[in-house]
C-alpha cells in the first residue's frame, strides 16, 4: 500500500510548493474545465507544455508522476477500447469481422487519452505539492462565502483534516486485522463466495468497532482541549497571498482564456 503515489504529498521545497493553496485549488478547477474545451491538438500541445513547465517547477520526479498514472491505466485502457469500438463516424480504417474502426474514433480516443493524462498529472501536481492540511485550509477559505447560506464550512474542513489524519492509522489497522484473521485460517484471496463473504465480514466488523472506539476517544480528546464546533476559533496556519500567487493566477487565466477562444475559433 506504500506504493500508492496518487494523492501523496511529497515533502520537498519548490516554487509550486510555496504557492498559496487557494491559488492551486482554484487553478486546478479552471484548468480542469479548460481541458474539456475542444481546442484541437494545438490547444492540447499548449496545455501540455504548460503542465510540463508546472511539473518541472514542482521538482517532482518523472518516475513519481508515472507511478501516479499507473493505477489508472486499466481504467483508461477500458475507456479507450470502448470508445474505439463504439464511435462509428468518419472513414472506415480497419474492418475485421464485426470490429470496425473509424478514423474519427481514433482521433477522439486520442483526445480522451490526452485529457485523462492531463487531468491525472495536474491533480498529482496539486496533491504532491500541497500538504493535506493546507489543502483543507484552502478548501475552507474557498468555501467560506457559502457560510452565509448556512453551509458548515468549518465542520467540513475539520472533517476532511481528521479523515486525512486517520487514513494511515486505519490502513495500518486494516493490515493488522487481516493478519490476525489470516492467523485464524482466513484466506482473503481464495475460497468459495460464502467463505469470501465471511472473510470480509471478519475484517469489516473489527475495523468498524475499532474506528468507532477511535472516534469516541478522539471526540473526548478534542472536547477536553476546549473544542467547540460552534464557537469562534483562531487558526494557527495563516494563508498569505503573495505577488507570485497573483502572477501565477494571471498565467493560468491567460492559458485558460486562450484555450477557450481557440475552441471557438478553430
Amino acid at each position: 500500500m506504500n506504493n500508492m503515489m496518487f494523492g501523496k504529498y511529497i515533502p520537498i521545497d519548490s516554487f509550486i510548493h510555496r504557492l498559496d493553496p487557494r491559488l492551486k485549488i482554484g487553478s486546478l478547477l479552471l484548468l480542469l474545465i479548460a481541458v474539456f474545451f475542444d481546442a484541437g491538438f494545438l490547444g492540447y500541445a499548449l496545455l501540455g507544455i504548460f503542465v510540463i513547465i508546472m511539473a518541472l517547477l514542482s521538482h517532482i520526479k518523472v518516475s513519481q508522476i508515472l507511478k501516479a498514472i499507473k493505477p489508472m491505466l486499466f481504467m483508461m485502457a477500458f475507456l479507450m477500447i470502448f470508445n474505439l469500438l463504439f464511435i462509428q463516424q468518419g472513414n472506415l480504417l480497419v474492418s475485421i469481422g464485426f470490429i470496425k474502426i473509424y478514423d474519427q474514433a481514433v482521433l477522439q480516443t486520442l483526445y480522451i487519452f490526452i485529457r485523462l493524462i492531463l487531468i491525472i498529472v495536474m491533480t498529482t501536481i496539486l496533491t504532491a505539492t500541497t500538504k493535506p492540511l493546507d489543502l483543507t485550509l484552502g478548501i475552507e477559505h474557498l468555501l467560506s462565502p457559502f457560510k452565509r447560506i448556512g453551509f458548515p464550512t468549518h465542520e467540513v474542513a475539520m472533517m476532511i483534516s481528521i479523515a486525512l489524519r486517520f487514513i494511515p492509522t486505519l490502513l495500518e489497522e486494516t493490515q493488522r486485522i487481516m493478519k490476525a484473521q489470516a492467523s485464524r485460517g482466513v484466506e482473503f484471496s481464495e475460497g468459495s463466495l460464502k467463505e469470501k463473504i465471511l472473510s470480509i465480514v471478519s475484517l469489516i466488523i473489527p475495523l468498524f468497532i475499532s474506528a468507532f472506539q477511535r472516534a469516541e476517544d478522539l471526540a473526548n480528546a478534542m472536547e477536553s482541549r476546549n473544542y467547540n464546533p460552534e464557537a469562534k476559533r483562531t487558526r494557527y496556519k495563516q494563508l498569505i497571498w503573495k505577488i507570485s500567487d497573483t502572477i501565477s493566477f494571471a498565467c493560468v487565466i491567460m492559458i485558460c482564456s486562450v484555450l477557450v477562444i481557440m475552441s471557438f475559433v478553430l
Binding site: R176, I177, S183, R184, G185, P206, I209
Partner: peptide, 20 residues
C-alpha cells in the same frame, strides 16, 4: 503454508479487536 497457521498460533497485541 496454510498448515503453518494452525501449527503456530499467533496472538497479536490487543487481540480483542479480532472478535467479530
Amino acid at each position: 503454508l496454510k498448515s503453518l497457521r494452525k501449527k503456530a498460533g499467533l496472538v497479536f497485541q490487543f487481540p480483542e479487536y479480532q472478535l467479530f
